[in-house]
Amino acid sequence: MRRAVGFSAGQWLDILRAVFELALGRIHLTSKSPRALLEMAGKRGDPIENSHKTGAVDVVIHRVSWAIAVAAGNVPWRSDCFVQAMAAQRWLNRSGITSELFIGVRKRENAAFEAHAWLRHADITVTGGDFSTFIPLAGPETWNGLNNTSPALR
């Protein structure tokens, strides 16, 4: 809490935006079908011209990543990795920054099945932390092939 006192006005605005995006992501998670969620995850936004070359994009990505992480740990509802990835992706899309949402799984010996979602922009991990032990099951290629999905996702 002491650290929060030192946040700038801009950081507080980013946290408020993150809370809004997380709330919207949580609402979508509880109210939309799996297919609709996957379709949303596949929306990459309209890219900014030469966005991969500008330092400004990296600053926005860092702000989004930071604010989502701070807000997710302090909201009164579950904001797991998928909600965080959806929230950050929507925020970046509205800023004209493309990103790719992934869903992966891992199974460790004598351990429970685990799923994880993460968001990336080029080689930058926006949300999801270390995903190196997860095998991606759904990602950009999946989102493009939604017309051929199983009936369970319709």
Rank of each mutant, 00 (worst) to 15 (best):
H116K: 05
E109P: 02
K107L: 15
G96T: 02
A69N: 08
F113E: 01
S65T: 09
K53I: 01
W143M: 00
H116E: 07
G129F: 01
S150T: 13
A71Q: 08
G6R: 15
W118K: 07
S95Q: 14
S132C: 00
E49S: 09
D123L: 10
E39M: 14
I48G: 00
V64R: 05
P76A: 06
A67N: 05
S51W: 12
F20M: 09
Q84G: 11
A152H: 07
T30Y: 14
A67M: 02
E100I: 06
N148Q: 07
Q89F: 01
F131W: 13
P34F: 08
F131Q: 05
T125R: 02
A88K: 03
E114P: 04
L146W: 07
V83D: 12
R26I: 06
A23V: 05
W77Q: 01
P140G: 14
R108V: 03
S79P: 05
N144Q: 11
R108C: 05
E100M: 02
L37P: 09
S65A: 12
M40C: 01
F134L: 03
M1I: 08
G10Q: 11
M40P: 01
A41M: 15
R120T: 11
K32E: 09
R44I: 08
G6C: 05
A152V: 12
S31N: 07
R78L: 03
A36R: 13
F131R: 00
D130L: 01
T98M: 03
P34M: 03
A56M: 06
H121L: 08
S95D: 03
T98S: 06
P151K: 10
A122N: 15
E49V: 08
D80K: 11
H52P: 01
N93V: 03
N93S: 02
V60S: 06
T30N: 06
A122I: 14
A72C: 09
I15D: 09
S8V: 04
V5I: 15
D14H: 08
G104E: 13
S51H: 11
V60L: 14
L37N: 09
N74C: 07
V64W: 08
N93I: 03
V70N: 07
G6Y: 05
D130K: 01
E21R: 13
E109R: 07
G45N: 08
S132I: 00
I48A: 04
G145E: 14
S132P: 00
A117N: 11
A111G: 00
P34C: 04
R26G: 04
K53C: 09
R154I: 03
R26D: 01
E21C: 12
R3G: 12
W118A: 06
A122F: 12
T98G: 02
R63S: 13
G10K: 05
A9Q: 10
E100Y: 05
